[in-house]
């Protein structure tokens, strides 16, 4: 399961769905909004997604995790909209017979989601300034205009 949501992520409730009598390991990951990035104080974040494509690509990643690792189930939820410091932006949960596969699958999901799913993040700083993350990789001509 891969979901995009505009609502707060209830990590404890999601984790409750990961239990199974055949699972000896449950690994969960919470990506939270932190108050700094690359030397700047961050006040809040905004996420947006190309939702239709994001859900398709996210579902592929979950399927891949199930094929690559000996797990019973993997789930990922990504929140979009305006988030405050400490809010959960992404939650990944994996249950498996043994911990090694669960850890590996959890890391696989978060790494693949970050690189392949069309979601963007804007940081807001003091002084009413803001910045789209990873825009510096575009041409200097373009990035100067952001």
């Amino acid at each position: 399961m891969f979901e995009i949501t505009t609502h707060p992520i209830e990590a404890a409730a999601l984790g409750g769905h990961m239990h199974s009598s055949s699972c000896g390991a449950v690994v969960t990951f919470e990506g939270r909004v932190r108050d700094h990035n690359e030397g700047q104080s961050v006040l809040s974040l905004s996420y947006e997604a190309f939702e239709k494509l994001a859900v398709k690509e996210g579902a592929k990643i979950i399927e891949e995790a199930a094929q690559r690792f000996a797990i019973n189930k993997a789930c990922c939820v990504h929140r979009i909209g305006h988030l405050q410091i400490g809010d959960v932006a992404i939650w990944v949960g994996v249950c498996a017979g043994h911990r090694h596969a669960a850890f590996q699958a959890c890391e696989y999901v978060i790494e693949q989601v970050k690189s392949r799913v069309p979601i963007w993040k804007k940081e807001f700083y003091e002084g009413a300034t803001s910045h789209w993350i990873r825009m510096n990789v575009l041409s200097a001509t373009a990035s100067e205009r952001f």
């Binding site: 494509l53 970050k114 799913v117 979601i119 990873r134 575009l138």
Partner: peptide
């Protein structure tokens, strides 16, 4: 997702996507 060389047809919806930054 498509390759840049993909042919276009009338009515297509195209999206140019900046670098992703989820998570």
């Amino acid at each position: 997702f498509q390759a840049w060389e993909t042919s276009l047809r009338s009515g297509d919806r195209v999206a140019f996507l900046p670098p992703f930054a989820g998570g």
